[in-house]
Structure formats: structure tokens, C-alpha cells
Design a protein around this nucleic acid. Structure first.
Lengths: 349, 349
DNA sequence: GCTTTTTTAGCAAACGATTGTGTATTTTTC
DNA sequence: GAAAAATACACAATCGTTTGCTAAAAAAGC
């Protein structure tokens, strides 16, 4: 095997009897360089297969062209969000360092530090830590732009966030079901400590009231966004059906929807005939599930794009040393969901 | 807002009237430091919320504690592979820079350069570029450890790779179907330019021959691993069924399996009654599809773990400057698949 | 109490780039 | 042909670390 080929500006400069600065300037296309030397240098760069050392560059310029992304589980809908993020960031020559916390809130803090050690230029954070405020301030002080997503931050720091309009999502579901003639609607929710769960639940109640439909607290199940919880909630709902009857159920996460389906099958109930079902994030890209499930669909890719754009903007402001907060307006962007109507609810009663 | 808090070894050293090196040594726990100064320094570090600058450290140590991961599509089974990778790398304090090429081979080269600019310590590469050898050599010369996965590299460089044992996968399918009494088996394959597709196809023929079953070339469809291709292939198979009859079909990717199912539905054919079906990567974690589909399942998470371990090893050797190739044994690891038998094929004919 | 040994801490040179300033050299201007 | 202006390049400081070597201080030995 040939010897290791690692060239630096110095290597090239020495070979050509030029100064490092001159070579640097042709690499970056800055400064005044004569056509002759430029050509000479270019040739040498090519010959040595010179690739600039971004580490050294970062040290000097204080920019790493890298952003961190922390998610609870990349094998979830986050994967598509990240695709959106990656698409817009990559076009600006940023790369992303991805961290999967496996839904363990206590890991977030640790990874945040790791990312800061690497001096990321910005961070996208889907936190599940209800106490994230305890450590996030430290990094705000270090002046790193953060955009939250999925869950709303509890921190009192002024932060950007982009999320689904969960209130609206629930309203769409309730309105749709009401239109189909349903009056008694059950909801299967996540933990209220997560803002997404809270909003979906609150949105449900608000929408029910708006439609002048009865809100039976026994029909509001709050669990944990997972399959087991969705299954368990549905079982309980079905067991109490005599005292607390309902004709439709709204499951507020993908896994919970699956759990609910599982429970219904075990009870030998069919949708939409026995009970109408509306799910969440239930994509079924290839239409394999029959009858098809009505579901709230998040504009996942777009969430990613908006996230990235917002962060880019923040990082831009940061570079300009916008000291005055007057200029840095933080905002929470809420993206509208879509209700994909399938067979599971598309029957008037 | 308070002022920006960015401290360096210098900041701390000056405040304590110590040298930078001393502070550095207590941060790293290296060298001889008296208990008194150590304590003093620790306190100051804490007070300033000092976080070491990995960029500067990297420049000096030539290690970034970062590895690159290039995949064609993270919203695929790769997400789980990455989870495995992340789990083992994170435990060694490495982070991963993730790149999604959107299945565009021409982007791989570009991103590779970007990653090298960032001086990643190693690379995991799931290439779809049939001409990856044209640029991979350059980076091998720069001495960065690479482990391939998903597809086998075409480069002649000695490379590590970890992949599914695709030959075995096809054998398992054929043996299973043979056991169920099938003789005429069709296969829906990807492009032979991708080694995964080639191996699954070749494995199929070999297994058929071993079982002394007829290999009808008209029953071997080669397309592109996507839904449309799977659908199209299945339609063609069904249309030619009179001349080239078959009782079972083996689709060699998740999307192709979906496409095949779609086609069968349109032809009003049911599995396993009309045709037995075996898929690939068809996970259906929550058992939503009925009847359940028999499928080859890759040990996805494990692939990730093995990948990461192999890379760690490579990087370790690299640090030790193992010049002699004698010590650096490159290898291709083939992980065994699992055949999850579902209803779609579980019927003797 | 004076060497000798052992600890502890500081000096300074890297790592590979960027960039403001200084200075030959060339070009323009009159 | 001399002064002014412009051009092309070099010098050197700097970013925040690590680390080998050295000097000072403390401990130990006599």
C-alpha cells in the first residue's frame, strides 16, 4: 500500500516556495492572487489531493458547520423529519450529528454536553425530559441557537420551536367524527407531562365543547404513547362500555393506534361497523391495512424543513452578533396537520 | 440576558494564576497534580461551567471522536441499523455524523469529501454507487477506516464489510417453500448491480438446484427494489401464469413485497390459498397485516452493533500505526437472517 | 542542615488553518 | 522619469488544546 497521503497548506506551500497564506487564499478564493500563481497552486492542490482541514478552520473561525439533532427514537417518524432537516441543511453545507436517546430523558443532558464539546453551531432538540429547563439554560448562556420540536420546551428561556398544531389536529378529528354522527367519543392519550399529549387531550375537550358534545371523563384515557398503553386503554374503555358507551375512539399516537386495533380484534369488534377509529401518525404508505384507517398525518418532512430553516436563521443572527434581543424574535411555529380519511371512520351513524 | 459564557483553559488558568498546562492536566486527569491545586482548579472549572473544546483537542490529537455514516435512505430499515451503531459508538463517546444520499449515488462522493473535511475517524458506508471504486481509493490512501454494509463494495481495496448472508436467506426461503410442497417458485429481485440483489438471486438459483427444483428463467424477475418494480414484476408473473405456472413467490425487499401484495389483490388472489408469498424485511411489528406474511428478517440492530464494533477495531489499529498489513486483517462478515414464518406460506400443497 | 530524590507546575512548540498588516514589486499617472 | 497607486505576496499572531522537557519546590536520606 502506498504511504498515507495527508497534505496541509504547509505541504503545498513548501513545495511551491510560497507562503501558507497565499495557498490558503487560493483555496478560499479570497484576496488578490495572480493568475499565474493561482494556476500553479491549483495544480499542486490537485496533485496532492488536498482537502482542507475543517477542524483547524473551525478553531479559527469559530464555526463548525455542524448542527446537533437529538431525538428520542430515530426509528420513528423522526426519521422522516430528519430527512427534511438534512435536505435543507446539506444544501448549505452543514452536516448533522445525530443522537438517539432511546427515550431516556436523563441521557439528553449528557449528549448535549458531548455536542457542545464538539462546538456545534446549533441544535435541534426533541426533548422528552420534563425537566430540561434544569440544564438548557447553561447552553443558552453559551449562546448556541436551539430550536425545539415535537414537544414544547418547559424552559423559561426564550426559545424557538416548531410543532404540529395539536389543538387543531384534535379539532379536525372531533369535527369529522361529529359530522359522521358520533356523539360519544373516547380518546386515548399520552402523558400530560409531554406537551404534545397535553395539547391533543386539551384540544379534544375544547373541540367537544365547541360541538356541544358531552365530555365524559371516563372516556379520556391518559397513558404513555406506547402500544401497551394504547391496548390497555382500549381494553378498559371496552370493559366499561355499558356504563360509559361510545361509538368512536381517537388514538393519539401511532403505537397507541396499533394497540387499540389489537384490543378491538381481541374483542371481536370491527371498525367502522362496531366502533369508528381515528388514529395518529398512521401512515400505511402502501395501503396494506384493510379496512384503511382514518388518521391524523403530520407533515413530517415539512416539519424538518421548517426546523432547519428556522435554525439557519438563528445561526445567521448569531454570527452577526445581534446582541440586542430586540432583533432576535423567538417564535413557536405550529404546522397544520392533515386528516386522511379512511374506511375506519367513514360511515355515518 | 447575561453575557455569553465561553471559558477556555486560559480563562481558568489566568484566574488562578496557574499555567494552562496545569489546568489541562486536571481536566484530563493526566500528570501529577497536588490535591490542593486540583481542588482549586475543579472549583473554578465548575464555576465557569467549563466545557473542553473538542475542536482544539482534535486538532492536536488528530482524533475527532466522530464517525460518518452514509446511507441511501434513513427512513428505511437503516434507521434501526443506525440505532445499533449509535448504541455501541455512543458508549465509547463517539458521535455519528449522518448523511442521507436519497439513493443518489453521485452524492456519495461529495458527502464523503465533506466528511473527510471534518476529519471523521471512520466511516460506515452503505453505498449504492456501482462505481464507488473511482473515489474510494483516494480516501483509503488518506488512511481512514471504512466499513461497508448493505452492499458489498466493488472497490479492489481491501475493505471490511458486514452484510446479511443473502445466499443463506434465499436458501432458507426455498427450503421452506419446498418443504411446503412447492415446486415452481418465482422470485422478484432487484438490480444485479447491487450485490444484495445479485446474491439473493444467485442464492435462489443455487438453492433451487440443490433441492432439484426446476429453475424457470421466466420466473426470475429483476427490477429495482421499489414498490412499482415489485408490483410490475408480479403483474407480469401473473399474466404469464399459464405458460409459466408457479405456486409461490419470493419478493426480495420490503417495498417489492408490498408491490407484490398490491398486484395480488388486484388480481383477486389470496395468499396462501392461491399463491404462497414470502417477503423480505417485512416486519409488521404489531401484527396488523392479516393474514400475516412470511418474511426474511434481517438482524438489523445487530448489524448495526457489529458494524460499529468492527469500525472501532479498525480505528484502534489505525491509532497504533499498524503499518504492516499483516496485522490488519480485513474481513467480510455475513450475519445470518431469520425466516419468520407467517400465514402467507404456511400451508402444505 | 545539606544533598539527593521525588513531586508539582510552568514553558513553549506544535496541530492546520485565517486574516490584518506590512512590504517589495509592478503598474499607472502626469 | 519620478511619484503615486495598485498589485501580489509574506509575516506573524491567533484560535484552544496537548505534551515533552525543564525548573522549582517539597520530601527524604544522611
Amino acid at each position: 500500500m502506498d504511504e498515507i497521503n495527508r497534505s496541509s497548506l504547509k505541504t503545498i506551500a513548501q513545495e511551491l516556495n510560497l507562503s501558507i497564506s497565499t495557498v490558503s487564499r487560493v483555496v478560499n478564493g479570497t484576496g488578490k492572487i495572480s493568475a499565474a500563481t493561482r494556476k500553479k497552486v491549483m495544480k499542486a492542490l490537485e496533485k496532492h489531493q488536498y482537502v482542507p482541514n475543517q477542524i483547524a478552520r473551525s478553531l479559527k473561525t469559530n464555526e463548525t458547520m455542524t448542527v446537533g439533532v437529538i431525538v428520542p427514537d430515530i426509528a420513528d417518524y423522526f426519521a422522516t423529519v430528519i430527512k427534511g432537516v438534512d435536505a435543507v441543511l446539506a444544501s448549505k453545507e452543514y452536516s448533522i450529528i445525530l443522537v438517539d436517546t432511546n427515550e431516556q430523558p436523563e441521557k439528553e443532558h449528557h449528549y448535549m454536553r458531548l455536542l457542545y464539546e464538539k462546538r456545534i453551531d446549533g441544535l435541534l432538540l426533541a426533548t422528552v425530559d420534563p425537566e430540561e429547563n434544569k440544564w438548557i439554560t447553561e447552553y443558552k448562556k453559551k449562546n448556541i441557537p436551539i430550536v425545539f420540536f415535537d414537544n414544547e420546551p418547559v424552559t423559561s428561556e426564550k426559545c424557538d420551536a416548531v410543532m404540529l398544531d395539536n389543538i387543531k389536529a384534535s379539532a379536525m378529528v372531533v369535527n369529522h367524527l361529529a359530522e359522521m354522527g358520533h356523539k360519544n367519543i373516547a380518546i386515548i392519550c399520552g402523558e400530560r407531562s409531554e406537551s404534545t399529549a397535553k395539547e391533543r387531550s386539551d384540544g379534544f375537550r375544547i373541540a367537544m365543547k365547541n360541538k356541544r358534545l358531552p365530555v365524559d371523563l371516563a372516556l379520556i384515557k391518559e397513558g404513555s404513547f406506547h402500544l401497551e398503553s394504547g391496548y390497555q386503554s382500549m381494553v378498559e374503555l371496552l370493559n366499561n362500555r355499558k356504563e360509559h358507551p361510545f361509538t368512536a375512539v381517537y388514538a393519539t399516537s401511532y403505537k397507541m393506534t396499533c394497540g387499540a386495533i389489537k384490543a378491538m380484534r381481541e374483542f371481536n369488534l370491527r371498525y367502522p361497523d362496531d366502533i369508528a377509529l381515528v388514529g395518529f401518525d398512521f401512515i400505511d404508505e402502501y395501503g396494506l391495512i384493510e379496512p384503511s384507517i382514518t388518521s391524523i398525518i403530520q407533515p413530517v418532512r415539512n416539519i424538518g424543513c421548517v426546523l432547519a430553516s428556522r435554525l439557519l436563521e438563528s445561526m445567521q443572527n448569531n454570527k452577526k452578533h445581534v446582541e440586542e434581543d430586540v432583533y432576535t424574535v423567538t417564535q413557536t411555529i405550529r404546522l397544520p396537520p392533515e386528516l386522511k380519511v379512511g374506511a375506519s371512520s367513514n360511515k355515518r351513524i
